[in-house]
Design a protein around this nucleic acid. Structure first.
Lengths: 239, 239
DNA sequence: CTCTGTGAAGTCATTCACAGCG
DNA sequence: CGCTGTGAATGACTTCACAGAG
């Protein structure tokens, strides 16, 4: 293992690989080569090998990778072997939706608190897990008491930087931001922004271009496309 | 204007530039140079010029860009001068949260329909706008009737590809996908995936690394950091 | 003989640096 | 002069291609 700087593109892919391996493990597959993994999930085999090589030599030449072993390695590398406690700031539509969403559990993330400045919301309990909505002014204390290590910012753009400052002061080092602004984080704090406006506007750009309307020739369909079409027809027959 | 292929990184930045210009316009600023724009919003001036140059010559040498004019150009380029009609598939937590969220209005996107396969949800009206939840099997018809041109996939991962197939069959060319899977789109259809699991797991990776705990020297604070700290203190005094 | 791990080559994106317009 | 628009230089990321381990 070298101690170089790992790009965020690489870590994102590690996350993808782990997801693929989970599927393979569930299907009872014990061993897989980078080539087979790439073919099945439309990845690049060289890239898989390179990404993994940053962290060690996990494969066996002539054979491939052990699914279970590689899964354990990736889980460790991504820090998913340790539970993370998430606090969501902003108990609006998005904040409560995220608190209710339990797909993060699988990745060892648990939402343990919500925060808001709206009196009407403070003290309420949200979702099946009955997550309490705290006064945002008590953020630092709750972060300490609940051991929160990841914050989610789900507040309007104009207050997002202020919220981030508060969150950083409370000692949180990892932040997922949904507000459509470029936030300034101090050193040692990682902010990842999910900007839905940018995503939508990029789609709009695409729609605005005159598209090459390419009629797919059924004979040239790739396997997965055939399957997709069959499923589609089944669906339509139901209605 | 050249007719080369524009990268998605570029279109995302155009969206950012437009947002910055909107702020400047609201502040009454009429003209700005790429350098000033870059300084204010932490961008790179050469990149701004290069991105814009793909679409024409919008600036005046020795002066800079007209805020209003560039705003109009970017709006046109991104296709935001035409209204977009959005259909959301999946009326769960995320789907309804997105239907309620009205921050997209500013970008000329309107959510006009929700779809679900759950009988209990079909026929209900969601949010202040009273968006109707339709039976997902009637998707194609509603897409036609309502003139939907953008779909949002907010369903569990295992059914996402099937939903995408249906959406594509209905003739929708732009899709925003929240399901944590790599979807296969046919040619001429643009899918943008927002994968929250990957985002969170990348943050986890960051948390797992031993961080260089760098104590910020107050003397070396950048201007924006000073402002941030002051605001932070104000906030704490409130409590 | 197969598949990994990895230098080398190739591709794509960003930044520099400056000629030349207003 | 100041600033745009742009070739040229640099840097980042991906893919190729193969030596060598199992």
């Amino acid at each position: 293992m070298k101690s170089e700087k790992i790009s965020e593109l690489t870590t994102s892919r590690l996350s993808v690989y782990l997801r693929c391996l989970n599927l393979l493990a569930a299907a009872g597959i014990k061993t897989i080569s980078s080539q087979a993994l790439a073919d099945q999930f439309r990845l690049n085999s060289a890239q898989i090998r390179k990404d993994l090589a940053h962290f060690g030599e996990f494969g066996t030449r002539g054979v491939g990778y052990s699914v279970g072993e590689l899964r354990r390695h990736l889980t460790k590398i991504l820090g998913l072997d340790r539970a993370h406690r998430v606090g969501i700031v902003g108990a609006g539509n998005l904040g409560t939706a995220l608190a209710n969403y339990n797909g993060f559990r699988e990745s060892n993330f648990e939402v343990v608190a919500l925060f808001d400045n709206d009196r009407a919301k403070i003290g309420r309990k949200v979702g099946a897990a009955e997550t309490i909505v705290h006064d945002v002014r008590k953020l630092a204390r709750v972060v300490r008491e609940e051991g929160i290590d990841v914050a989610v910012i789900a507040v309007p753009a104009r207050v997002a930087q202020r919220v981030l400052n508060q969150v950083m002061s409370a000692g949180v080092k990892a932040v997922l931001n949904f507000a459509p602004v470029r936030l300034h984080a101090r050193l040692g704090v990682k902010v990842k922004t999910v900007d839905l406006t940018i995503s939508l506007e990029s789609l709009s750009y695409f729609l605005a271009r005159p598209q090459i309307t390419c009629v797919t020739n059924p004979r040239s369909l790739l396997p997965y496309e055939e399957i997709a079409q069959r499923e589609e027809q089944e669906l339509q027959q139901q209605s």
